[in-house]
Amino acid sequence: MTTSPVPERGDAAVRSEILTGLRLSLPAGLGMFPLGVAFGLLVVQHGLSWWVAPALSIAAYAGSLELLLVGMIAALAPIATIALTTLLVNFRHVFYAFSFPLRVVRGRLRRLYSMYAMTDEAYAITAAAPGTWTSPRLLATQVAFQSYWVGGGLAGVLIGNLLPGPIDGLGFALCALFVTLTLDACRTRGQVPSLVLAGAAFAVAVVATPGAVLFTALLVFVGLLVVRYALSRRGPSDA
């Protein structure tokens, strides 16, 4: 007569962390899924094959870039243009890496996936609760985010094939999600100065380099954050 093994305390803790990660992913995931639907609709409306949606979501997995790539692929843009666009749009991930809790992830394959799945949503949710992340919680959150996105893209492809005509304004869904993530990460007064600095950096970039606003805004914003950090380290006694 055999009995089922009793789960170890460590296994229960891992399951609890995974469930916590899935729960934390829900608020942003509720925005990612309809955005994925919009992405799938764009794929269909541009006359591309249905498999382009899941292929891009796995190969690139960067919402803003994927939305841009759909139009560029449909327009048969040169490879060099696509490569430069990818660099400029995804260059922000370099700055994400400075504070993303990748150090908690154990195992080479797990760490590689966490690096690959370091999206805007994953960074925003970790930045909102620093110091609370474990490897199971972080990986569960990132896997959930990619599931929302890929699932939404497939649903959008299916809906797009059933609709009689195109839908305008789908591109604004990405902007709306970024606004929501920004507000979620700036819930306290201490984050308001960073929000103001981000607005100032964007204004400078629009005026100085209208052809590369995102790239310039990120560089200016990081510089302003470094200055703010240096001033805060000085303290009132050193002023």
Rank of each mutant, 00 (worst) to 15 (best):
D238V: 09
I79F: 15
L69F: 12
M1T: 13
L48N: 00
S64E: 08
R106C: 04
P136F: 05
L69C: 13
T188A: 04
L163I: 01
I18D: 13
S64W: 02
L214N: 09
L109E: 13
P236T: 07
F33A: 10
L177H: 09
A129R: 02
L170H: 05
P136W: 05
V6Q: 14
V196I: 14
L163D: 04
F91S: 14
I82Q: 11
P27L: 05
G107V: 10
C186Q: 12
L177P: 09
L183R: 01
F172R: 10
V220T: 08
G165I: 03
W51S: 08
I82S: 14
L109N: 14
V70H: 02
G235H: 08
H46C: 06
S135A: 09
L69T: 10
V70T: 02
P78T: 06
P236F: 06
G71A: 13
R234G: 13
A124F: 06
Y148C: 12
R228V: 09
P166I: 09
A203C: 12
P166V: 10
R137F: 00
V207Y: 05
M115P: 03
Y96G: 13
G190I: 04
L102Q: 04
F172A: 15
Q45R: 05
P54G: 14
Q142E: 15
F98W: 13
R15T: 05
V89S: 11
M118H: 01
F145P: 06
A53D: 04
L76P: 00
S49D: 09
G151A: 06
G31H: 05
T216N: 06
A129T: 01
L231W: 01
R189H: 03
S114H: 03
E8C: 12
L76Y: 04
L183G: 05
I159T: 08
V179C: 09
L56I: 01
S4P: 07
S4L: 14
A53S: 11
R234N: 11
E17G: 05
A38S: 12
Q191R: 03
E121S: 11
Y61W: 08
A124G: 11
A75W: 00
L30T: 11
P101R: 14
T188N: 03
L48E: 08
L24C: 14
T126D: 12
L30S: 12
F202I: 15
V14W: 03
A28F: 09
G40N: 03
T180E: 15
L163Q: 08
V37M: 01
V43H: 05
A140T: 06
H93N: 10
V196E: 07
G151T: 03
P7R: 07
E121I: 04
A212E: 12
P164S: 10
V150M: 14
G47I: 11
A140V: 04
I73W: 13
F215L: 06
Y113Q: 13
E17V: 01
P27C: 09
A201N: 13
V179R: 03
I159M: 02
V37T: 00
P54I: 10
F178D: 06
L84Q: 11
A127R: 03
W51H: 09
A28P: 09
C186E: 01
L109Q: 12
L19G: 10
V220I: 11
R23G: 05
F178I: 04
G40P: 02
L219R: 07
R103H: 15
Y61E: 06
S25Y: 01
Q142L: 13
P27A: 10
G36K: 06
A230G: 07
L102T: 07
G107Y: 08
T132Y: 00
M118D: 01
T2C: 07
T3N: 10
P54N: 11
V227P: 01
